[in-house]
Write a protein that binds this DNA or RNA. Structure first.
Lengths: 234, 234
DNA sequence: TTACTATTGTTTCAAACAGAAACAATAAAC
DNA sequence: GTTTATTGTTTCTGTTTGAAACAATAGTAA
């Protein structure tokens, strides 16, 4: 075990699965590492005197520019298979860093998985020091990722699907005001199946947590849909 | 940050909420620390080359003597409020250990919460080196616990309640063969409310995952109930 | 102005489900 | 046999859900 003067807790990391909805598809953000072209989830480390949640928010702010976003922890990954110091070493050396064999980043890490739901259109994805680029990928066309990140994405999607309905989680993927059709599209993208329009509207409205606003005249030659927003808490 | 030759990962712990069902009430195991009388969840640490899940199983085996038990991770606790080195120091010194101020156990810990469901009657609770005793406490009469352990118990119960139905989780709290009444009592103890007998039977049987066996003649002067078990997977 | 079209909001109808109560079966005691 | 306590099943009713039809309406085009 290497001594570590980085200011970060050793052995502990987080990975975030950042979901956005593009208008038709559910997507997540992936970073591409310098030179190697390897893809992975955006993640980071926890400062020694920083709450875990706060560390994840910090990383998200740096990556997306967004604050106040929906963020939830879903699982902590602590297997041994996920430990691959050779990979980490290559990433670091590709970035022109000269790394000692006992550098703390080459140690074993246990990683806490978080997922975020954000308004796709409000984001300016920003790479960090180690990554060339950060881009959106549809959840049904995720390429091979480093470490156990494909597994992490799968777990995040599972979690999102089973908790979809609590308090209309999914509105976090839309702008403040949205139409019923947009909301249904988000549901369909997450669940990966078509839903019945009439029943969807009935079910969502029966939750009683949406507020109906003015109509949205889009210019189409048909009835204009209402805009909705989440009811403010009383 | 102190250097650590213990063979355990620093800064990472787990806490386990071990549920058992006594025939009427849902209970959990709590340890009492040497001399101080302080109560806490049984927990432990992860060896440097040990999978997280394995570490928790190991601890459970030592505490309960049981292997092959139902175990699930539910949340990871990483706030700063949970860091209380003074408390940890008192526990260790009460145990006649002379502890340096930079001992690794006094550092900040992030703790992964697991819960286990076990057959109450099969367990011989066993204290560890630091604890005097380990005993059952009804979930509605949990005393004040150390650190954030009351919060951890609450989160575990929440998680158990919302996931109760998946694959009849709760049968893990009963012996292999059980009556419908016993199963209903487990449900009632977990949910904290009475359920309708006829509807419960109908709902559970409609899941189609129980096998019906011979009747259980208890000696009571009334119709004998059937015994059930979980269907083996095909 | 008046059809016409595309889309959205609402209603209807039947099937499935859930909650409460009644009914039926039965093991042991008297 | 009769009685009693408990368990297994059915019936009745009201509610929810799924699929389809119906109604409303914003623009387009004759």
């Amino acid at each position: 075990m290497a001594f570590n003067t980085s200011g970060y807790l050793p052995h502990i990391a987080y990975d975030s699965v950042i979901f956005g909805f593009s208008g038709e598809k559910l997507k997540i953000l992936l970073i591409e590492y310098h030179k190697t072209g390897w893809l992975a989830l955006p993640g980071g480390f926890v400062k020694v005197d920083e709450p875990l949640d706060e560390a994840v928010k910090r990383g998200l702010r740096e990556r997306t520019g967004l604050d106040q976003i929906f963020l939830e922890q879903f699982y902590t990954f602590g297997s041994l298979e996920r430990v691959q110091p050779e990979i980490m070493k290559k990433i670091l050396t590709a970035h022109d860093k000269d790394i000692a064999d006992d550098h703390w980043l080459l140690d074993r890490f246990i990683s806490v998985g978080y997922y975020a739901l954000i308004d796709y259109d409000k984001v300016e994805p920003t790479p960090d020091a180690l990554s060339d680029s950060i881009n959106w990928y549809g959840v049904d066309e995720i390429p091979e990722l480093l470490f156990d990140h494909n597994f992490i994405v799968k777990k995040a999607l599972d979690h999102l699907r089973t908790h979809l309905d609590q308090k209309l989680l999914s509105v976090n993927l839309l702008p403040e005001r949205f139409t019923m059709k947009e909301l249904q599209q988000v549901y369909e993208a997450i669940l990966g199946e078509k839903l019945n329009r009439a029943n969807f509207q009935r079910k969502i409205l029966s939750l009683g947590i949406l507020e109906r606003h003015e109509k949205l005249y889009s210019g189409g030659s048909h009835k204009a849909p209402y805009l909705y927003s989440l009811k403010k808490k009383v």
